[in-house]
Simulated assay, not measured.
Amino acid sequence: MTRADVGILHPGSMGARVAAQAVAAGARVRWLAQGRSAATRERAAALGLTPAASTAELTAECGVILSVCPPAAALDVARRIAATGFHGVYVDANAISPDHMEEIAQVMRGNGARVVDGGITGPPPREADTTRLYLSGDDTAVDTVRTLFAGTLLTPVVLAGPVGRASALKLAFAAYNKISYALAAEACALAAGHGVLDDLRDLAAHLLPGTPLAAPEQLASAGARAWRWEPEMREIADAWRDSGLPGTFADAAAHTFDRWRAHKDDRTVTSDRLIADLMPPQPDERR
């Protein structure tokens, strides 16, 4: 049987939109429905994804498998796919350190799979020129993935070199971009504690427009995503330390994002609520 389909693990908010671009390009995209929520099933159906009954069926039908999942699950996902004997093109597009990417590559190569390191930057692809998929690794496999997404809303960008390069670029960008949200929230918490939060926002709007510090609605958007950003910060900390750099910035940001875990996928949370979560309880709240 020719394995012409594409598999996606798993169609969450980012994975679903990545899969939708493959569908738009003419691929049949399969996903593993076992154990997934009703919301995920509805999302997959709406995007035209085809359910697979098992991991074995998924790997038997698909020549390319895309892993888009929380960083902490990336290695387990790779091991489950490798256990089926998959020997197609495996794309790990998760926010993991270069060392962790190499570990996954070793797992997948045991069956002869060709491995592509993928780094997604930007929001889930819904508009042109907003989201890129950086690719490095096996040249032939990289070209397969580049061709798959060419002309879609997910722009493939090839980085010459081995696995690890795309992951390094992804984490370097995420370090600056996402830690800025944690830093803005901590700065706002300091200002709020001294009654000058509005003044800080006015100052930031004057000198730092377009930043999370200046735009409460932009800072608020981090609340719903913090549960995913916290493990990403751990990966960034590991990557920095593996490179001989201190990982303390990322450690601190991970702690901040962990304070917002209760707001998972809550699009209504406000920046004031996030700031309050960082502040010590008031005397009457300690009773």
Rank of each mutant, 00 (worst) to 15 (best):
M1I: 13
G7N: 00
G7H: 01
S13Y: 08
G15P: 04
A16K: 03
R17T: 05
Q21P: 09
A22C: 03
R28L: 07
W31L: 03
R36L: 06
R36I: 03
A38P: 02
E42K: 15
A44N: 11
G48L: 08
G48T: 05
T50V: 13
P51W: 07
P51F: 06
A52I: 10
S54I: 11
S54M: 06
E57A: 12
L58C: 00
E61N: 13
E61K: 11
L66P: 15
L66T: 07
C69S: 12
L75E: 12
V77T: 11
A78I: 02
A78F: 00
T84C: 10
Y90W: 07
V91W: 04
D92M: 00
A93H: 03
A95T: 08
A95F: 10
S97E: 01
D99R: 13
D99E: 15
D99C: 02
I104D: 00
A105W: 01
M108W: 01
R109V: 04
R109N: 02
D117M: 01
G119H: 06
T121E: 09
G122C: 11
P125A: 02
A128E: 12
D129L: 09
T130Q: 15
T130M: 08
T130R: 15
R132K: 10
L133S: 02
S136M: 14
S136W: 11
S136H: 14
T140P: 00
R146M: 06
R146K: 06
L148M: 14
F149Q: 05
F149G: 07
T152I: 01
T152P: 08
L154V: 13
V157P: 15
A160S: 14
G161M: 04
G161V: 04
P162R: 13
G164Q: 03
G164T: 08
A166E: 02
S167E: 06
S167Y: 07
A168C: 02
L169K: 00
K170N: 09
A174E: 14
K178I: 05
I179V: 15
A182W: 03
L183W: 06
A185W: 14
C188V: 05
A191Q: 09
G195M: 05
D199L: 12
D202K: 10
H206A: 15
L208N: 03
G210A: 04
A215Y: 00
P216K: 02
Q218G: 01
L219G: 03
A222D: 01
A224K: 04
R228L: 09
W229G: 08
R234K: 10
E235P: 07
A237S: 12
W240M: 08
D242K: 06
D242L: 01
S243H: 06
S243E: 09
L245A: 14
P246Y: 00
G247H: 07
T248F: 14
T248R: 12
D251L: 02
A253E: 14
T256L: 08
T256W: 14
F257Q: 00
R261S: 10
K264N: 11
D265T: 12
D265Y: 11
D266S: 11
T268M: 09
V269P: 05
D272G: 08
D272T: 13
I275F: 02
M279K: 03
P281H: 05
Q282H: 10
Q282M: 05
P283V: 00
P283C: 00
E285R: 09
